[in-house]
Write a protein that binds this DNA or RNA. Structure first.
Lengths: 338, 338
DNA sequence: AAAACTTTATGAATCGATTCAGGCTCGATT
DNA sequence: AATCGAGCCTGAATCGATTCATAAAGTTTT
């Protein structure tokens, strides 16, 4: 418990505590000699700033909270990594919370972050979270929505156009000759899921000819749920199966891929084409390399954190919506071997 | 900035600040009436405890730092998730830092966590980190090594027996008839890598007959490095290639799997058997389902956090090493189709 | 040489929760 | 009636960094 405080440093350097604080925070206003002496004292005593005291007095925090929908999903791993990179430029650390699509956990983490008085919150929300975020804002804690468009414009957001992404995915399936398409995804409390489905519907309706679009609902966006959905599809007689599946994310798609096999032979892509969403790094390495809608995940994280810091620096800023466009990545899972 | 402090609550409830604090921290010593009034005041004013002030005065923190070697690796995602689960039981949040095998970043995060005066630190270290951790300990911050055995017993650790894992993996390769084995992994600053190699060497030496074991070094444990290593192997004449590869982790193995193809046909497992380490959830969904050494990743995280909390509660505790055994998971990548 | 600035340093007040020595009430004990 | 103790409450002191009004020293201007 060798608690070395700023007072000890001041004493050792033969200056006042105010001067030490100035060396730490605005070295320009201190003489070179004092800076040298203080720095030497810091060195020899092994002084480390007490962030709690700093936060208490100055009201500034060096942590940002990040509430993530699904920590297991490499997509969010990449997003967090982007935020982390951007944060480390300015000494910001990430307080991390994984909700696993559970509103209770979501609330818990927001409470925790409020107690911590984080500088701001990045959140990929489950359901409607605005009232809770408004309250944080009233306390001076900004929030930026990640991977979710802020419909009412009350908060800044960084997202990918999921509707367009859904449309592009299904257009691709139609272009490669598929007509009986299934959308696999859920729960529908997650906005990205409904958006991707909406885009898929639009594509099906605007196709020149008739296209079936059925919805296979899942409880969560995981590999296991994908496999379960795939098993349900496989349980049907062959003629009633879709000839293409658009999965709401790559985890579901990888699960589906595992399930869509008969006697060791996969039905993908010949009988059933399969496309996912996110283009996580494992999509390319899948049993059948997976076509997917790529999101610039790392850039989403970087951008979200940058906007958050800008907004906390200047609270006058008006919320702004940043929307990236997804990119179609075609691989074997939608390319029939002739 | 409606900063509601304990003072406001006290005033509203008509009691002193001391009483409010007591209601918050030891409600048993306060009359039922006071508890009621204070709670009502907290409710109506929307009071939230200021963790910075609490930390400053009481010296207790509700955050734990977690320094992770590679945030992109789903294995660590699982470990973090385990720690998070265990922490949320007692209102502990995770401050997250990803070093990406960079000692500078590792130091940066430890500095940051020290400033934050976290309750303790979980770390999967790169290279030798003991002196730095000793310093944290002197400051009252405990540390538990994750996924790394603490050789000198100075700190508690939770890990998997990597030597045994390496041995089991190579024994499996030998048992399925392979004799020219390559170990792909690096950098050797990472203890797990050297341990797995040591295990592999032991297996090769103790095999009844002669077994070749070559080492193909990589710069990092990523899919990209695995692919690069695979390309180097493929550049050799066919007769000089190994007939089995043990990759230091699954990311490398997945990269290798991508590289080990000739004209669209994979050499795995017929010409080259391939086994990884970690059994991340994507191993099963790979192009050729990947054999791997499974680690109980989530349990590692839970256990590490539990031990950390126990140690911070009672500093007298002696460091202890928890070692789980890995489990061989055989899939197609080491099972030759006859 | 006096006046007017600059530059730099000082140290007390402050942030909000916790702690703890001391005080008050009221019923029980002597 | 005096004393004691239990139960509860009070409020000042405290944690460590920052801030800011004030002062001291040094430099330039008149």
């Amino acid at each position: 418990m060798a608690a070395v405080s700023i007072r000890d440093v001041a004493q050792h350097a033969g200056v006042s505590v105010g001067t030490v604080s100035n060396v730490l925070n605005r070295p320009g206003e201190v003489s070179a000699e004092s800076v040298r002496r203080v720095q030497e004292a810091i060195e020899t005593l092994g002084y480390v700033r007490n962030d709690a005291a700093r936060k208490l007095r100055a009201g500034v925090s060096t942590t940002v909270g990040f509430v993530v929908l699904d920590g297991q999903n490499p997509f969010f791993g990449d997003v967090v990594r982007g935020a982390e990179d951007e944060g480390s430029k300015s000494g910001i650390a990430i307080l991390y919370g994984n909700t696993d699509e559970d509103p209770k956990r979501e609330r818990m983490y927001l409470d925790l972050f409020e107690e911590q008085q984080v500088r701001g919150v990045l959140i990929s929300p489950y359901g409607d979270i605005n009232p809770r975020l408004e309250r944080l804002r009233a306390r001076g804690i900004a929030a930026v929505l990640v991977d979710r468009f802020s419909g009412d414009g009350r908060f800044s957001s960084v997202s990918v156009d999921s509707v367009t992404g859904g449309r592009m995915a299904v257009e691709h399936l139609i272009a490669t000759g598929r007509r009986r398409i299934a959308f696999v995804g859920g729960p529908f409390e997650i906005r990205q899921v409904t958006d991707r489905l909406a885009g898929a519907r639009a594509a099906a309706e605007n196709a020149g000819e008739h296209v079936d679009l059925e919805v296979v609902a899942t409880d969560a966006l995981t590999v296991a749920d994908g496999a379960a959905a795939g098993a349900r599809v496989m349980a049907r007689p062959r003629s009633e199966r879709p000839d293409a599946i658009f999965a709401a994310n790559d985890l579901l798609a990888l699960g589906l891929l595992q399930a869509l096999t008969v006697e060791g032979r996969t039905l993908v892509p010949d009988e059933i084409a399969l496309i996912g969403f996110d283009d996580i790094s494992f999509a390319a390495a899948a049993a059948v390399p997976l076509s997917s809608m790529r999101q610039p995940s790392r850039m989403i994280g970087r951008t979200a954190l940058r906007i958050l810091l800008e907004e906390t620096a200047d609270p006058e800023l008006i919320p702004r919506q940043t929307v990236f466009q997804p990119e179609l990545v075609v691989r074997a899972s939608t390319t029939p071997r002739r």
